[in-house]
């Protein structure tokens, strides 16, 4: 049985129409007109215990609306939601004990208190037994290095420390399900990597089901095998990530800084689509030519000072899917 089931989920918001001008303002005092906005139109998916899924889409696609419905702080307009056998909005407090939530943009710790005090408070809130608390704290302290800042007030923590504290806090009560909303936003490369390793570990060791929303393609690639892609409130893709990348993520951009740019380097397989002084942007298809092959071609005639290879961002993959359609993709929902 899946741990999360969403069927034909819909959420409409009624937005008060703002009328313009003096007369409009007066009119709206008496009679308000509303426009309906469909934030989530018709989404269905199911998640098995122990999966990590990437729940992605551009801003305003309906991601957080869905997450809010799964956490029970938003009632669906229509459709079915079941989280660990519970209808979240009908039984919010019971559902709260089954889920852990981390918002990258907003801490759930108490701002003024030393970090450890927040943990102690959460222990009481979620009624975690003493042994369980000690065991979890020992693990998190070791893996996340919490001891270096346990006695520091939360407001004085660096972003990386705060995120580590936040994720530990969300797991204190051993929730079977973890919602991560941009858990690596703003972190440096090392901190990002640590966070990813930790998420992977708790997923494997504790069989925690993880729903991850992010704009960072690397998060998705390193953590998830499956992704659910939504846009404009509808599901556009649900299946293996490898497949999407195979189909849409083949284009790479090679950026080279040449020592002297007397002329454009001659290339086969790549296409220069932008140049600025001695810097060239070269688009190529990974299947047709490799980056090292292109670089070798260039070094025959020029000296390369610096270079980077850019992968397509999730946004551009999405817009590509949008343009080219996705019907021909096999819908490989995993069992």
């Amino acid at each position: 049985m899946p741990i999360i089931e969403v069927e034909n989920l819909r959420k409409d918001f009624m937005i008060a129409k703002r009328e313009t001008g003096m007369m409009g303002a007066l009119r709206s005092l008496v009679k308000r007109e509303y426009t309906k906005k469909e934030a989530v139109k018709d989404i269905s998916f199911s998640i098995e215990k122990g999966e990590i899924i990437g729940y992605i889409g551009p801003n305003g696609a309906g991601k957080s609306t869905t997450i809010k419905m799964l956490t029970g702080i938003l009632v669906p307009s229509d459709g079915k939601v079941l989280v660990n056998g519970i209808v979240p909005y009908e039984n919010r407090q019971k559902n709260a004990k089954n889920i852990g939530v981390v918002f990258g943009q907003r801490t759930q710790l108490w701002w003024d208190l030393p970090t450890i005090e927040s943990f102690e408070l959460l222990k009481e809130i979620y009624q975690v037994s003493n042994e369980r608390y000690k065991k979890n704290m020992d693990t998190f302290t070791e893996v996340l290095g919490l001891n270096e800042f346990l006695n520091t007030p939360v407001r004085q923590l660096s972003l990386g420390q705060r995120m580590r504290a936040d994720i530990a806090a969300s797991l204190l009560h051993d929730p079977p399900i973890l919602f991560l909303d941009e858990p690596t936003i703003g972190l440096d490369v090392v901190a990002k990597e640590k966070m990813r390793t930790f998420i992977k570990e708790i997923n494997q060791d504790r069989q925690i089901t993880v729903i991850l929303t992010t704009h960072d393609m690397e998060d998705i690639e390193k953590l998830c095998e499956r992704m659910v892609l939504i846009d404009h409130g509808t599901k556009m893709y649900d299946g293996e990530i490898a497949l999407v990348k195979e189909r849409f993520g083949k284009t790479r951009t090679l950026i080279v800084d040449l020592e002297e740019s007397k002329q454009r380097p001659p290339l086969t397989g790549g296409e220069i689509f932008k140049e600025e002084g001695s810097r060239f942007w070269i688009k190529f298809n990974r299947d047709e030519v490799s980056a090292s092959d292109l670089i070798a071609q260039i070094t025959k005639t020029h000296n390369i000072k610096d270079l980077t290879v850019e992968e397509p961002e999730i946004e551009s993959i999405i817009s590509k899917i949008y343009q080219e359609g996705f019907q021909d993709l096999p819908d490989t929902v995993k069992v």
């Binding site: 108490w110 003024d112 208190l113 005090e117 102690e120 408070l121 009481e124």
Partner: peptide
């Protein structure tokens, strides 16, 4: 009973928090 332990935890923490703002 458990419930009240939890709410008292808020009382204790708020007490400590006030001490921060002398």
């Amino acid at each position: 009973m458990h419930q009240y332990r939890m709410y008292w935890a808020f009382t204790r923490k708020a007490f400590l928090r006030s001490a921060v703002y002398r």
